[in-house]
Write a protein that binds this DNA or RNA. Sequence first.
RNA 1: GGGGAUGUGGUGGAACUGGUAGACACGCUUGGCUUAGAACCAAGUGCCGAAAGGUGUGGGGGUUCGACUCCCUCCAUCCCUACCA
Length: 802
Amino acid sequence: MNKQYEPSSIERDIQSAWEDEKKYQVKADNREKFYCLSMFPYPSGKLHMGHVRNYTIGDVISRFKRMNNFNVFQPMGWDAFGLPAENAAIANKVSPDEWTRENIEHMKVQLKSLGLSYDWSKELKTCDASYYKWEQLIFKKFADQGLVYRKKAIVNWDPVDNTVLANEQVIDGKGWRSGAQIEIKEIDQWFLKITDYAEELLTSLDELDWPENVKTMQRNWIGKSSGAEIKYQLENSDNFLTAFTTRPDTLFGVSFVAISPNHKISIDLAKNNESISDFLLQCNETSAAEADMAKAEKLGFQTDLRVIHPITKEMIPVWIANFVLLDYGTGVVMGVPAHDQRDYEFAKKYNIPINQVIEVNKNNELPILEKGKLINSSQFNGMSSDDAIEKIKEHIKEHQLGTELIQFRLRDWGISRQRYWGCPIPAVYEDGIPRILEESELPVELPKLKEGSAPIPLSKNQDFLNLSSNVKREADTFDTFMDSSWYYARFPSADNDDEMFGEDSNYWLPVDLYIGGIEHAILHLLYSRFFHKALRDMNMVDSDEPFKRLLTQGMVLKDGAKMSKSKGNTVDPQSYIDRYGADTVRLYMMFTAPPEQSLEWSESSVEGASRFLKKVWNLAEGRKYNEFSDDFEFTKEELALRRKSHATLKKVANDYEVRFAFNTAIASIMELLNFIPEEFKTSNATDAQKFCLDEAIVYILKMLSPITPHITEYLWSEFFIDNSSVDSWWPEFNEGLLEVQEFELVVQVNGKVRGKTIINKSFSEEEIKLEVLKIENVASTIADNKIKKVIYIKEKIINFVI
RNA sequence: GGGGAUGUGGUGGAACUGGUAGACACGCUUGGCUUAGAACCAAGUGCCGAAAGGUGUGGGGGUUCGACUCCCUCCAUCCCUACCA
């Protein structure tokens, strides 16, 4: 053994060499391009294990692609606006700007120490005006396309702090700082018409090379459903309440109609009725988050209003119910207790009649949610649900009682946030009338804060707000999802101040592989897809989808729980990088679980990764490549090693490229290393043995280099005298070497393994059968029993059924 | 409440298309080396059993010659739920 493996100095030297030669700065060329993007981080201050995992995955794939002669672009930047900066500012009296920029500097050093092959010349920060000025322009362009409008929307209101709270700032219905019972409040906000793209967002999912579960989540989120809008005339009035239903076949079972507490009618009724206004206040004592609303007790209040059933003309009571959402459809639902779980529970609680109108064969316990045969439905009796849906739709259309309708669950995107640390919404109010600013009036820069002062919302910043006596600026900032909805397109042009998307964006888009946490499966990815399609329709990008392929990684857990500061179970990656080196941390991250799965952090496994790299070091360090040609007469043992080397190469390439299964790739490289016979490593080894060992070492270094680029580069440069880089090419395996004359056959009796044997490939099925019946254990198990059936699966298994 | 996942030894995980369950590691046990330890090396290691053998992939049921894999059902955990990012 010559030298000791000392990762820190090796990694430092190699990283600075990369930096000096600008190795990962790329330009368009005539190779095939590969844009590999990992979700950019929120600069929280320190890198956490989730980042390390995410970015190592992206880097491994980028490096593998580069070795396979792709022109690879892998950028990195900062999702720099957001709530934590404001919280930190309040807690520590630092400006969000200062805090964020310091965090970025620190995290950048950490990322660099991991040896990630980023093109830092295209770094971007969403909090820079050079970035968000384009975002303001996109907003203006969206407005020109008719994709922007204003409407009221509900927010969490903290009546003590007099501020709007994010959902995560509401804990058990109370404001996290004030502890006050929060209220739902409606305020005017800007919206983007993502629903204009609902149909395309749904259908084009089919062509994406994305994980099926993510596509399913998006499909369900968009939630296309066909049904009917049915009009219920209010008693003694010309007005109607309109309710959407996917089950017009249950129309005869309607026994109440429920409206949202925020519905105009509810609010009007409350004006002259104290118990209704009390009830509405009660309904508003909940967080605006869907999960909280769904968990809240179902509350109802029966009004004096009644509506007329469109067919039976019976009078139906109108209730106000807290489970009816205003932003959802029409804010009115028709209650069919016999055939809807929630309506059933509501009717039971308030003694509302439950009228069964659907019958099924097996079970007639209410509520019956599935389709069946109609009963108690006058002329529609006896029809199947599916027929009745069509007939009832026809009937209501004919009698102008409603319309057939395709409805989406997807709602328009409210983008107004009542916060300081975000991109100012480029609008003004002239005598109270909103106007989106023209391109020539942009950008609207976020006003700087005095050092050491807590952030004040723009709504209280009079210098910023008041342009003249009758012209005020918009005080809200954009949802930070706006910032991350188009950054992937900006990256290639990040250093271009004259164009939003220059030629570089054209060349690199779309993203070939996007890697990030599964928690972004819906919102971020859907918003980005919407942006991309809207940009495409303005000829600003020329593809239909932003991310061709998607890899969603699972979370890093400790003690079975998500690492979080509040649980006190965080593990700081930096201390491990310092102690073991980046290569070990990267190797551990890739070895210990497949990317999609959540990963349980374990200290001792890091030791294992480190141990393996030491073995690789001890194998290759100090050795020089022998310039042999391969015209040896190989022994069986030598051939076996060669076969193992080539088989491993084949498997690893497939694991990297197709399966993203880095853990099994590493496992097979470990197997190869373990497979090398000891005598091949000694000085007495024959030339043929040296040749086989050299081949194995070349492959091991090559295969490991995407994961552990530093140690492999160092060993490679010692192994070869020719100054080439370990990552300059990917080897090709020899298919011919993989062919074997024999295979191992598993012999089963009644599905239980009773023996294994080596069979020559030239044997026929009949010969194999005779051969395996000679195996003692097989013969004794079958004994005198009659063989009823023989199942032979080629070169795998033979099963005797007795 | 709704949507999406996951569940395999003491631990992380493997088994890719219904065909040998537990690859590869960690840990542990025994032995070697060592004044001792660390490191390293060798052997062993799902469970029950002395062995033969039996049994085993969250629980229960089903399909099949054969099920971690497909179907039904139940349980547990995690992610998202439109203002955390």
